[in-house]
């Protein structure tokens, strides 16, 4: 199971559980036999909140080190790609791009299983830089903000053609703003 399905399944399980719990509680209020109401609500509530906090803290501790900011930080990239986003295309080059005269270089080919670095900025409004694999799954992303360069490091595990889509709404051409590169 991939992470996309996993995320959806975790969510759906939780949502169904909450729905069933809601239904159960609703049912219990229709024809209660005897006094079934919850005793000691204060203590039970306190206990539940402590449990919930603990669960959240554990989740925090597990997920924070997996944040993208720390990925491949200590691995110098084998390829460097400069990306300047503008309405409505991506200019990509192995060489730094002159903002006064932006032009793309040769088409981009990246090595598989080696860290690469994208230096992403924008020449006009905010854009997104989302990398999709050949199964149209979002692999990784960063934002392209004018005036700043975001450095996205990644290691591509599968060879193939990767597509780039803009992931920050930028105007009428937003859905057609795309580009691609090859990993082999």
């Amino acid at each position: 199971m991939n992470e996309y399905k996993f995320i959806l399944l975790v969510f759906l399980d939780a949502a169904i559980l909450i729905g069933l719990l809601g239904y159960y509680i609703y049912k219990s209020s229709l024809n209660p036999e005897g006094d079934k109401s919850i005793k000691n609500p204060l203590r039970k509530r306190f206990f539940f909140l402590i449990m919930l906090s603990a669960v959240l803290l554990i989740l925090l501790a597990i997920t924070i080190p997996k944040s993208p900011y720390f990925l491949f930080a200590d691995k110098p990239p084998s390829k460097l790609v400069f990306v300047d986003a503008k309405q409505f295309n991506f200019i990509m080059s192995y060489q730094a791009i002159n903002p006064k005269n932006p032009s793309a270089g040769e088409s981009i080919e990246l090595p598989v299983d080696q860290p690469v670095e994208f230096r992403v900025t924008s020449l006009d409004v905010n854009h997104g830089f989302g990398i999709y694999n050949s199964r149209a799954e979002l692999v990784t992303q960063t934002q392209a903000m004018p005036g700043y360069v975001n450095r996205l490091r990644w290691e591509f595990k599968e060879p193939g053609t990767y597509k780039i889509l803009c992931l920050e709404y930028c105007g009428l051409g937003h859905p057609v703003m795309s580009s691609s590169f090859i990993v082999k």
Binding site: Y148, V149, R151, R153
Partner: peptide, 15 residues
């Protein structure tokens, strides 16, 4: 020292 800085600003004016 291979310290990875996630981002850097570009030079700009009037800000």
């Amino acid at each position: 020292h291979d310290e990875f800085m996630l981002s850097y600003p570009l030079p700009r004016e009037n800000m």
